[in-house]
């Protein structure tokens, strides 16, 4: 069983290394239209120097709303679990 696990691990690792050799180079995306649009238009459209913030809070605001909702749900769960009065 242990030898089988070792062989399986080696196969997976060799596939990973093979994938690394034929991987697309980082920093040269195939589709660049959206990146170029954000870089050239984000400053004049939102007026923010930080393009990342303009994407997080403006272009992809729904995503941030979802994150805030997830945090709110987590806080509600913790408050429900620990906020009750514990009988002495």
């Amino acid at each position: 069983m242990r030898r089988f696990a070792l062989v399986a691990l080696m196969i997976v690792v060799s596939f990973l290394f093979f994938g690394m050799t034929i991987m697309h180079p980082i920093g040269k995306p195939i589709l660049q239209d959206m990146d170029n649009y954000f870089i050239t238009h984000a400053q004049e459209e939102t007026g923010a120097n930080n393009v990342v913030t303009s994407i997080v809070f403006d272009y992809r605001g729904f995503d941030t709303l979802g994150e805030a909702t997830v945090l709110f749900a987590a806080v509600s769960g913790v408050a429900m679990l620990f906020g009750r009065r514990i009988r002495a």
């Binding site: 050239t40 004049e44 939102t46 007026g47 120097n49 913030t53 303009s54 809070f57």
Partner: peptide
């Protein structure tokens, strides 16, 4: 306030609702 394109020091009174 509107902001110029490119690298600039920035202005606190920009960016609308952000």
């Amino acid at each position: 306030d509107s902001v110029a394109y490119g690298i600039n020091p920035g202005n606190l009174n920009t960016a609308g609702t952000l």
